[in-house]
Design a protein around this nucleic acid. Structure first.
Lengths: 220, 220
DNA sequence: AGGCGGTGTGCGATATTCGCACCACCTGTG
DNA sequence: CACAGGTGGTGCGAATATCGCACACCGCCT
């Protein structure tokens, strides 16, 4: 593992968690390197437009990152867009696409908020949470074979075709998700909705499951 | 400038331009380093989830990038979202938010496509082009003082309040943009629409200019 | 003036990286 | 079946890029 690159990437992570901007000294402290080291790293990041100085000369993330992030899972996102749009519109709830990250985490890749809904759940793409928690991870786990000691919610989701959890990722918010099947039988993604409250859970579940299936078919 | 970090960031850029995936050897050739060096850099990037192996073991960008890119210009994007939505909806054209990058470039930060339009322009956020070309850059230049030898389009845009160019960024596409004023009189961003053809250019211009002004007021 | 906190820059010591050599694996081929 | 040619991965000594001290500068406040 490259130490210098590692430190540079740590800087980016620190910057992404503190969007109000940081000084070089603060960055150096945050990743436990000498101030001059952080300074040289920042210069390099600036040259790639991954960070810049704001109006107060504090260091913030740069717009080059949107260019880098755009192609990430481009095919999946392009296909998921209309599916999520339709799901958000028909349910009036916030629809999301999650992908498995490693073996223990799920990451939000897309979030589509419904138009016209007076109140709806809102959260940002990029967020991660343990795969055992939340309806998306449960749905992905339920798409795999039965595992000794799995959560009851996983077993139930395998039977029903969709997963439901409440308050595990966002307090007081209920998630309803289904796994997106990929060609070889595995599932590394889920589609779902997040709601504050619901009336007909089963109807929500079948709609989510249908959206997940249709995305799976689009993926081939 | 840190050489190792520089090389790692070059790898990310190469990966972002070739989304079909690359091998370690190809990456090494692309940035002119030894294969083992590229290998070590890739390992470090993988550890930060900035790249991963796809189903064919080829190296592609990782989802960690969406977490890093999310907070970029978060305040500006959050405020611009409803303005762009309204602009795209009312004009039936693709609306975009561009920001100045350095002194010579403009970068697309947001693109909102109209809903329900049968045909519309589509392009990806993150793209950059010279500030002299395209309506967005012209609008930003026109917001500044008169400069000797500036393009006629800039002078005209300063008089009209919005800029119009055709085929300078995307062939056969006409852009109509206005600068987003920021508090201290400078403009580092523009709002605009892209159309294949238009009927009432002046109406389009006034709508764009109104959207840009309203975003400027939101920014304070 | 003087202290303080931040930024930026040479430069020598040394820790880090470089890149060769080597091994393992897969695949198509004579 | 042996072999060539491609990729992936790993020790390890030599080379070099990095580290971090020391110094200078700037703006701000007391």
């Amino acid at each position: 593992m490259s130490k210098t690159l590692h430190h540079g990437l740590l800087l980016l992570r620190v910057l992404s968690e503190q969007q109000q901007g940081l000084t070089v000294s603060e960055l150096a402290d945050a990743i436990s390197v000498h101030r001059t080291v952080a300074h040289r790293l920042v210069r390099t990041l600036e040259a790639h437009q991954l960070c810049r100085r704001d109006h107060q000369r504090r260091i913030v993330l740069g717009t080059g990152l949107v260019s880098l992030a755009e192609p990430v899972q481009q095919d999946l996102r392009a296909l998921a867009r209309p599916v999520l749009d339709e799901l958000a519109e028909s349910t009036g709830a916030t629809a999301h696409l999650l992908v498995q990250e490693g073996v223990t985490q799920m990451r939000a890749l897309m979030v589509v908020e419904p138009r016209g809904a007076l109140v709806h759940v809102s959260f940002r793409p990029g967020q991660t949470h343990p795969i055992e928690q939340g309806s998306g991870g449960v749905a992905v786990l339920a798409h795999g074979p039965y595992r000794e000691g799995e959560r009851a919610e996983v077993t139930e989701a395998r039977a029903k075709g969709y997963a439901v959890t409440t308050g595990e990722v966002i307090p007081a918010v209920t998630g309803v998700s289904a796994a997106v099947p990929s060609g070889n039988g595995t599932a590394a993604a889920s589609i779902g909705v997040s709601v504050f409250e619901y009336t007909d859970l089963d109807q929500l579940g079948t709609r989510v499951a249908r959206a997940a299936r249709s995305l799976g078919e689009l993926l081939g």
